[in-house]
Computed example of a mutant assay.
Amino acid sequence: MLSAFGWGAVAAGSLFVGALLALARSWRKGLVGGVLAFGAGALISSVAFELAQEGLELGGPGPVAAGLAVGALAFFFADRAVDRIGGRSGGGAGGLPLAVGALLDGIPEQAVLGIGLASGQGVSVALLVAIFVSNLPEGIGSASDMRANGKPARTIVSLWAAVSVVCVLATVGGYALADVVGGEVKAGIDAFAAGALLVMLIDSMVPEAHSKAGNRAGLVTVLGFAVAAALSNLT
C-alpha cells in the first residue's frame, strides 16, 4: 500500500509541479504544445502496449470491449459538462475546465498504476512516464489561464494540490481493489482507462498540441510514442 501511495504521488505530483511552474514564469505556447505532443505520443503507446494488451491477457475481448465503451462514454459526457462550465462562465472559467479534465483522465490512469503494483508486476515505467509527461502541460496551461484571469496564487495552488491528492488516492484505491476482484474486472478497469484516454487524446490533447506547436507536433508525438514503447519493452 505504501508503494502505491509513493508511486501515485510521483505520477500525480507533476500536475502540482506544472501549476507551480506556471506561477513561477510565463511559458511559450510552442514549448507547452511540444510537451503536450510528447505526452500524447507516450499515452498512445501506453494505451496500446500497457492497457489494452494487459486487459486482453487478464480478461479477454469481452471485458475489454465493455470497458472501452464505458470509459469512452464516461469521459465524453463528463467532458461535455466541463465545456458547459467554461461556456457559462466565459473567460472567467480561467482554466477550470482543464483542471477538471485532468481529474477525469487522472483517476483511471492512476488506478491502473495501483492495480499493476498489487498484481506483483511492479510499476510500469512506460505508463508512469506517460502520465507524468502528459500531466505537466495540463497543470501549466490551466494555472496560466487562472493567473491571467486574476485568480489568487493561493487558490490556484490549493486547487491543483487537491486534484493531485485525489489522483494519488485513486492509485491506492486501485491497489486495494485489485485484491478483491478477478481478472475480468481488472481487464475492464484497464480498458475503461484506455477508452477515456483515447477520447481525451483525440478531442483535447492532440488538437491543443497542434494548435500550440504547429506541424512540429506530429514529429514530437512520434518521439513520445517511441520512447514510451521502448520503456514498455524494457519492463
Rank of each mutant, 00 (worst) to 15 (best):
G8P: 01
S232Y: 13
K151W: 12
S46L: 05
A230G: 13
G174A: 03
Y175D: 04
A213M: 10
E54A: 14
L177F: 05
V180D: 01
V32A: 14
D79I: 02
G71S: 00
R88Y: 13
G87F: 10
V64N: 00
L197H: 10
G34H: 01
I131V: 14
Q53K: 14
G62M: 07
G39D: 07
F75D: 10
F225G: 12
N135L: 07
S158E: 09
N215V: 08
M205S: 00
G106K: 09
V129P: 00
E208T: 13
F5R: 11
A230C: 08
P63V: 09
I107M: 05
N215T: 13
V222N: 11
D79C: 03
K212Y: 13
K29C: 04
P207D: 14
S232L: 10
L201V: 08
A52P: 12
A40G: 08
F77N: 08
F132V: 13
A194H: 07
G33H: 01
A130D: 11
S14V: 14
L68C: 04
V227G: 06
T221L: 13
V35A: 14
L43M: 15
V125K: 03
A24E: 06
E184N: 00
L51Y: 11
V220A: 06
D83R: 03
E184C: 00
I140Q: 15
D83V: 00
L51I: 02
G92I: 01
L56D: 04
N135S: 10
A72W: 04
A161K: 08
L43K: 08
S26N: 12
G214W: 11
V168I: 15
D145F: 02
G91W: 07
E138C: 06
V199H: 09
P152C: 09
S119K: 01
G174V: 08
D105T: 15
G18Q: 01
P61M: 10
I202F: 02
A176Y: 07
V100C: 05
A162L: 14
I85A: 08
K151C: 03
A42D: 10
G106N: 09
T221C: 09
A148N: 05
A19H: 15
L15T: 11
Q53E: 10
D179G: 08
Q110L: 12
D190Q: 13
S45E: 10
W7I: 14
G13P: 01
G55N: 07
L197W: 06
E109F: 02
A81R: 03
D190C: 08
A74W: 00
V133K: 13
A130F: 12
E109V: 03
G218E: 07
G92R: 13
S134D: 15
G60A: 02
G120N: 04
A111S: 06
E208W: 05
V168P: 07
L73Y: 07
G173R: 01
G41P: 11
P63R: 11
G174F: 14
V125C: 03
F77K: 04
L177P: 06
R84S: 13
A176E: 14
N233D: 04
G122F: 05
A230N: 06
G141W: 00
A99Y: 06
L56Y: 09
A72D: 04
S124G: 12
S45Y: 05
G122K: 11
H210W: 05
E50K: 04
G92K: 12
G6K: 10
G71E: 08
G173D: 02
V17M: 10
F38L: 15
G95N: 15
F49K: 01
G62H: 07
G141F: 10
S134K: 15
D203L: 11
L231N: 02
